[in-house]
Amino acid sequence: MAALTSTATERETPSLMRRFGAYLYNHPNLSLILLLLLPLGWLLIVYLGSIGALLVQSFFSIDDFSGRIIREFSLRTYQDLFTQAHFDIFLRTAIMAAAVTIAAAIIAFPLAYYMARFANNRTRGILYLLVMVPLWSSYLVRVYAWKLILADEGIITWAFSAVGLRGVLDAVLAIPLIGGRTLSFSFIGMFLVFVYIWLPYMILPINAALERVPKSLIEASSDLGAPPGYTFRKVILPLAIPGVVAGSIFTFSLTLGDYIIPQIIGNSSFFIGGAVYSYQGTAGNIPLAAAFTVVPIVIMIVYLMIAKRLGAFDAL
């Protein structure tokens, strides 16, 4: 009897935790706030707060004589920003980022497609590992490896000479703008390295999107008489596009902000990252560096909005 009554009272007055749980269940907004308090606080204060403070500083200006930062609102820094020399930097960086993105998508797609559609579990596991290993091995050393590959005494020059095509390489390097003294001092070299370094970031989202394509959809398409090429274009490709866009967010943004690769490879002409780095570091001109970062921020926000339209966020 005693046991019975005790359970009865327990039922009437559940533990505090339990009542709290029931309260939360009935007040979903409260539980939402509790869940989001910590992470949103972090992102808003640490991250958006910093970005905001940086943007505020872009409206300060620097005293030309003393080199001190004047903490008053002015648009002078933006006047300095929009000069022809800086415009060239923006354009050069954006073109490079776009070219790298397109090339990475072209190289990544067949591999991702093969992994998702044709490889058996074992092969897929091996391929996945082969894609992940470069991602894990040091970014810097991989860039440096390319310096060795592209250098005058390096493998590419050796290979071209070995098959007697040294003349072709020299002709390519003689092309103005994209050529240079050697491959490791040219835009071609830089482009190759960018594509190489960011390639896994393109492969993985495309592969994820392709793996989500239901097999029944492909079977239905062929049952209804579509040849494989038609199924690919009308069924598989549209479903893979969000993956490509998701990958392009990485390749585009990473190229936009990188300042290491142009430092190690390339002909020392400035990219956005390098310009920001030198303005904030050696020049000590934080306002101009801050104003400089506004450009990639605006580019990326526009890019992200388009990406969201295309459904890329679900494929990240």
Binding site: L256, I272, I286, A290, T293, L304
Partner: peptide, 26 residues
């Protein structure tokens, strides 16, 4: 909710140099 999902992606979507300088100056 959409703003939150954007906020989560932002630190990796914005170029690293932007996040780097912003954090350093704060």
């Amino acid at each position: 909710r959409d703003a939150i999902s954007l906020l989560v992606v932002l630190p990796i979507a914005l170029p690293g140099i932007v996040s780097g300088i912003a954090l350093r100056s704060s």
